[in-house]
Design a protein around this nucleic acid. Sequence first.
DNA 1: CTGTATCCTTAGGGATACTG
DNA 2: CAGTATCCCTAAGGATACAG
Lengths: 137, 137
Amino acid sequence: MKSKKRSECPLSCSLDLWGDKWSLLIIRDLMFSTKNTYGDFLKSAEGIATNILASRLQSLEESNLIEKLMHPESKVKGLYRLTQKGIDLLPILVEMYLWSDKYFTMPDDLKATIEAGKKDKDGFIKLISERLKNKIA
Amino acid sequence: MKSKKRSECPLSCSLDLWGDKWSLLIIRDLMFSTKNTYGDFLKSAEGIATNILASRLQSLEESNLIEKLMHPESKVKGLYRLTQKGIDLLPILVEMYLWSDKYFTMPDDLKATIEAGKKDKDGFIKLISERLKNKIA
DNA sequence: CTGTATCCTTAGGGATACTG
DNA sequence: CAGTATCCCTAAGGATACAG
C-alpha cells in the first residue's frame, strides 16, 4: 500500500512498496493470467473489495510497477499491464511458488506450471519474462 | 500475521502466513545477522513495537517458520532460530534483494553481500543455507 | 532485559450504494 | 462494466507502563 519508509534496508523498502496482502496478487494476475482489467481483478478468487482494488492499482501505478492504458475496445475501461520494474518481480513470485509447493498442496491447475518451474527455473523465468516484455514492446 | 485463508492459491496462502510488513524483517534478521533474541529484533532499524514483535514471533512460531528455544545463558531469555521451513524462504529473500538492488540504492554495508549474490546466486544461497542448517543440526 | 498488557489512534478492509 | 464514495468495523500498530 506504499507505506512510509521505515529504514534504508532494501528489503524493508520493497515491503513498503508492495509488501501488503493484496499487491502481489494483482501482480500475479498480470503475470500468470490474461487478466488486465478492473473487473478481471475483482473476479479473482480472493475477493478483493472494490475500494481496496482501486487503492492498490493506484499505489502500484505510483510505484511504477504497473501502468494504466486506455482500453482499445472501450472508452471507460482501463487496461493495466506490468512495467519492466513489475516484470522484474517475476523471480520473486516464482520462488514463492516453489516454496509453496513444498509446504502447501497445489491446486491441480497449477501443478503443471510449477513442475515446469521446478525442472528448469531459469528457463521458465526467461520464457514468462519474454512473453510479458513483448506486451510492453 | 497469519490471517485467514482467502483462497487456495499458494501465493495467497503464503501471503496469509508471512505477507505482512514485519514478518520477513524478522526472518531477515535471523538469516543475515546474528540477531536471535527479542531485544535484538527490537533494536533493528525499522523500530518494531514491542507488542507487534511479540505477536509476530508467536505467529511465525505457530506457522513453524521459527522456533523458540531456551537461551543457554539466561533463564528468562528466549532464543529464536529458523526452522527448515523458514530457511527455505532464503531464495525468496535473495530475489528480493536482487530486485531491490536494481531499483533502490544499496546501503554500503550490503553492497558486498549483494555483489556475491549477483555473481553466483545458487552458490550464495547454498552457502547461507548450509550455515543456517548447521545451527539447527 | 524479556516479554505482556493496556490505551488509543490510524489504517485496512468488507459491504454496499452510487455515478458515468 | 469501470471506478468512486461512504459507512462502519476490525486489525495494525505506536507509546508507554508494567511484571518477572
